[in-house]
Design a protein around this nucleic acid. Structure first.
Length: 578
RNA sequence: GCUCUCGUAGCUCAAUGGAUAGAGCUCACCGCUUCUAUCGGUAAGGUUGGGGGUUCGAGUCCCUCCGAGAGCACCA
């Protein structure tokens, strides 16, 4: 529709012999100003040195000469806006279109034929799945789905640190505390490893002798010379990775085959690239090489290319590759393996500056990657009540936060009469939704304040609220199965605000991709749900004297479909009941 | 010190350079023999951190100051 209006305006400008400039078409805040609005007259008035209102009037007259059936009227208003009002026919057709397209409703083709890779979550084996991983996952999964909805081939990647000091600390802890019981659940074993890691880590910081022991273990993890350590390593890696998979399943993420990348594999690849691109000693960097030696280490002087960048170490003075080098190995591997048109990496904001330097270094080696890499960062999660512990009193992890959320939903539903199994199932879906929505409702960039109570509240501005609204809609549809609408097929003349939002899903998805911000979808759905609730409150649908019942039911179906597709974009499912 | 991100109602957040800056929570009031009232409506709440500038038009762009968070060489 937007494109159609754009063409219409283009045509009008042509007949008026006005040079086309960069005008915009948008939805006015207030529907009394139409469904679409353009600033074309104000933009063009300047160069023509005319009054924008007069120009708007002229363009309007021109536009009215060939209005399509979807537009009922055009008006000029305010400082020179031209407002378009969509017709009853447009909205009625739109409802039919939604019912027809079903799960494809809201998709666009802006990325057709493109391949987009999204890397997110990135937890480390031997360490707990943190709140940060939960955030990155929610954001990355949603972005992946937005990309998928824009018709791109979507590849989901995960990058995990399976070597390094944290592994040695955990192994030391396991050796000290002993192996857990065989019959423990995977998640419990993973939790046990997390405890061992914490203990090892504390001892590393406080005891010099233990620190040395852990460093020895670290070397042995690399060179694989110690049978006992190898055994613990293989076991621990497998257990934690398996536990992560359980969490992904709960969260609704499925990473692409062959797209689990590990630091252990990326290190040698990166190291080779770095060494090949390293010049001689400091002061002799005329060879055009990217890296150079400095104090025994191999570094990249970012500030030589851009004063906003800084120097970073890629291979330390002991000859070991740092995280930077592994990142190079990862990036090159991704491009060589999948050759994406765009490679998006989602991490916390603390990696922003570091990533700029690494990206610059990669761009110097592979100039064709430069415009195809994008780093998205998000803030930290803070707690409204300031508490950093879970309900059970432990240090809070991503998993415990998720469990807390589910437990709270279960508590809220204790009055509902359902079979036991069903309640648990619903509380999972709703608990995930509570967390995801809290993360995805605000723009990326600054920290989010997580309010446990509000997030699981079924009232306004929450995931459960959106689910509840959809469930109510579904409930009408179920009841309507034995409701005869044969003599209730009239179409109302009046256009509800619900209909005025319903058709916008596709535009919201496009906008969300252009900005790479999932919260636009969340904001839209909340507005849409609130319009539905207003409609629901004002209209009794399953009533014998409702001559619009057929259309109303179609409208509700269309609403439900839009919610389903929109919530899918956020990674949220709708339960049958709640 | 330098770089990045951010600063909007009491709180948590929206607002592709557009019209009277919007929601939710909280507080007060109103509406269920009804398709799930865990809903809807009304009211209240603002010098968009301060000051300049660009623009027909600035919460949004530029400069400057203040404040918060993150980062700045051998950790990831």
């Amino acid at each position: 529709m937007k494109d159609q209006i754009e063409k219409l305006i283009g045509g009008a400008l042509k007949t008026l012999d006005i040079e086309e400039s960069n005008f915009s078409i948008e939805h006015p805040e207030d529907f009394k100003n139409g469904d679409y609005s353009t600033n074309v007259a104000m933009v063009c008035a300047k160069s023509l040195k005319t009054n924008p209102r007069e120009l708007a009037e002229k363009i309007k007259v021109e536009l009215e000469k060939n209005l399509p059936k979807e537009i009922s009227k055009v008006e000029t208003a305010g400082p020179g806006f031209i407002n378009f009002y969509l017709s009853r026919e447009f909205f009625t057709d739109n409802v039919a279109e939604i019912l027809n397209k079903k799960s494809d409703w809201g998709k666009n083709e802006i990325l057709k034929g493109k391949k987009i890779m999204v890397e997110y979550t990135d937890p480390n084996p031997f360490k707990p799945f943190h709140i940060g991983h939960l955030m990155t996952n929610a954001i990355g999964e949603s972005l992946s789905r937005v990309v998928e909805f824009s018709n791109a081939e979507t590849v989901r990647a995960n990058y995990q640190g399976d070597v390094g000091p944290h592994v040695a600390k955990a192994i030391y802890g396991i050796m000290k505390k002993g192996m857990p019981e065989e019959n423990m659940k995977v998640s419990e074993k993973a939790h046990y490893i997390g405890v061992c890691y914490t203990e090892g880590s504390n001892l590393y910081d406080t005891d010099e002798n233990i620190k040395k022991e852990i460093e020895v273990i670290n070397k042995k993890v690399y060179d694989k010379t110690d049978e006992e350590i190898n055994k613990i390593y293989d076991w621990g890696r497998e257990v934690t990775l398996e536990a992560f998979e359980e969490i992904y399943k709960l969260l609704g993420t499925k990473f692409s085959d062959g797209c689990y990348f590990f630091e252990s594999a990326m290190a040698p690849i990166g190291e080779k690239i770095v060494r090949e691109n390293t010049a001689g000693a400091e002061g002799n960097r005329s060879t055009g090489k990217v890296f150079s030696e400095s104090d025994g280490a191999i570094v990249f002087h970012g500030e030589e290319y851009d004063k906003k960048l800084h120097t970073r170490v890629f291979i330390n003075s002991q000859g070991l590759p740092t995280y930077e080098t592994k990142e190079i190995g990862l990036t090159v591997t991704k491009f060589e393996k999948e050759n994406p048109d765009l490679s998006i990496v989602v991490t916390a904001t603390e990696q922003a500056e570091y990533m700029k330097v690494v990206s610059k270094a990669i761009s110097l080696i592979h100039p064709d990657y430069e415009s195809r890499m994008k780093h998205i960062t998000h803030g930290m999660m803070r707690f409204a009540d300031g508490k950093m512990s879970s309900r059970k009193g432990n240090v809070i992890t991503g998993e415990s936060l998720l469990r807390d959320s589910m437990d709270m939903v279960l508590e809220k539903m204790k009055e509902r009469e359902m079979e036991d199994g069903e309640k648990e199932k619903i509380s999972e879906v709703v608990g995930v939704s509570a967390l995801k929505y809290s993360i995805l409702k605000s723009s990326l960039g600054s920290d989010i304040i997580y309010d446990r109570e509000k997030s699981v509240s079924f009232e306004g501005d929450s995931g459960p609220y959106l689910q509840y609204t959809a469930v109510r809609a579904n409930s009408i549809l179920n009841k309507a199965k034995d409701f005869n609408t044969d003599d209730k097929k009239e179409i109302p003349g009046e256009i509800t605000d619900l209909e005025k939002y319903l058709y916008q899903l596709g535009e919201v998805v496009e906008h969300s991709y252009e900005k790479l911000e999932p919260h636009h979808v969340a904001t839209y759905l909340t507005k849409l749900a609130s319009e539905f609730n207003a409609f629901y409150g004002n209209t009794q649908i399953l009533k014998d004297d409702n001559k619009f019942a057929k259309y109303h039911l179609d409208l509700i179906k269309a609403f439900y479909q839009t919610m389903q597709n929109g919530l899918w974009l956020l990674g949220i499912e709708i339960p049958e009941r709640m």
